Amino acid sequence: MKKNSENFYIGADSGGTKCEILIERVSGEKINHVFPSIHYSLHGAKSFSEDFNRNLKTFLNQQDIDINKCLGICIGIAGARRRQDKVALKNSLSKYLGIKKIAIETDAMIAIYGAFGNNDGAILIAGTGSVLYAIHDGKLHRIGGWGKILGDQGSGYWIGKEALRHIVREFDIQPEPDSRSLLCKKILSETGLNPSNIIGHTFDWNFPIQEIAMIVLKCAGEKDNTSLKILDSASDDLVKHISDFFESTGRKKPLDLVFVGSLICNDNLYSRKVRKKIKKLFGRKINILKNYNSPAFGGLQLAKKYFNDMNYNEN
């Protein structure tokens, strides 16, 4: 079958577990798709590029779209903050995709550009990691985003790590399995962890600690006290990103805020806790937006901006 010969741009938002792409043909038609992704910080540029290339080309082939007709792609990638990361990713992706017009941004950059363009506003991200990005008086500010060892408070990884810390303490003080909390029992049954293997598994960088956050959410929904305490502490830490932003900038004006990331952009016990605390602490000073453009849309707009600009430096 002959592939569609129409030129197009791609915006992509790649987090720790999924990637959303938005394709726009020059005719204006848009195509949206989501596929699984791996985390760049854990797997490196080569493995990330292989995975992205396989998933993207599988979808393009299903749609009879020729990758060589791509006028430019901008990918927002979690963990790709440093220049050397962006260069390594661009070179690797160019090799696998077979195209040169590739721009690499952080997932936060495409999210804030998608939501606000060049206007003032903030995004609070809580997925695998956590960070707040804000445009204040035309300048970009970042609060948090220091990674899972130094930061990421209130994120999926942080919640998962806190849950694991609680269950190893239960191993110490509640040696009898029947005496342990619902959270401990659920984590052990759903992950295969036990007192004998938990150190080996969790010191393996590929163990998905962030996925334990969903078990915490489920247990909190069943009124498990340990899970509720973890989410309460996590929501305090996440909301503190906003307090730190106002303190660091001295901003007095109200600010529009967008939630980004699987933990808080969906309605659940945790996202409701975060919303409630923001309303209590900031009142009308923070306006949480319900309708806004996606990060993938931000990536698409940046792809069109960069590759319509003859002065864009691809390196």
Score class of each variant (00 low, 15 high):
Cys184Val: 08
Asp244Ala: 15
Tyr133Met: 08
Tyr312Glu: 01
Leu71Asn: 10
Val258Asp: 02
Phe116Leu: 07
Ala12Ile: 07
Ile125Asp: 00
Gly298Leu: 04
Ala296Val: 05
Arg284Pro: 07
His33Gly: 04
Ile264Met: 08
Thr17Glu: 02
Leu238Gly: 01
Ile230Tyr: 00
Gln301Val: 08
His43Asp: 14
Val26Phe: 10
Gly250Ser: 06
Ser294Glu: 07
Lys277Ala: 11
Glu222Leu: 09
Ile38Tyr: 08
Gly160Lys: 00
Ser233Val: 03
His241Pro: 05
His43Val: 14
Lys101Ile: 05
Cys219Gln: 02
Ser5Gly: 10
Gly79Tyr: 01
Ile242Lys: 11
Tyr306Met: 05
Tyr40Trp: 13
Ser294Trp: 03
Asn119Val: 09
Leu231Asn: 02
Ile288Lys: 02
Val168Ser: 12
Lys46Tyr: 15
Asp64Glu: 15
Ile264Glu: 01
Tyr96Trp: 12
Asp85Cys: 14
Asp204Thr: 11
Leu269Ala: 12
Ile125Phe: 06
Ile110Lys: 01
Gly121Thr: 02
Pro295Gly: 03
Lys304Ala: 10
Ile21Glu: 00
Asn308Phe: 05
Leu300Glu: 03
Ile187Tyr: 02
Lys304Ser: 07
Leu124His: 08
Glu247Met: 10
Pro36Trp: 05
His39Gly: 09
Leu71Val: 11
Asp309Tyr: 12
Phe8Ser: 03
Glu105Cys: 14
Ser49Phe: 07
Leu263Ser: 01
Val260Pro: 00
Lys139Gly: 03
Glu29Tyr: 06
Leu188Phe: 15
Ile288Gly: 05
Ala78His: 04
Leu289Ser: 09
Ile242Asn: 08
Leu289Ala: 08
Phe171Val: 11
Ser41Arg: 07
Asn287Ser: 15
Leu182Asp: 04
Arg165Pro: 02
Glu314Asp: 13
Asn291Ala: 13
Lys229Thr: 05
Glu162Phe: 03
Phe116Lys: 04
Arg272Pro: 09
Pro254Cys: 04
Asn268Val: 10
Val34Trp: 00
Gly76Phe: 05
Leu217Ser: 00
Ile149His: 03
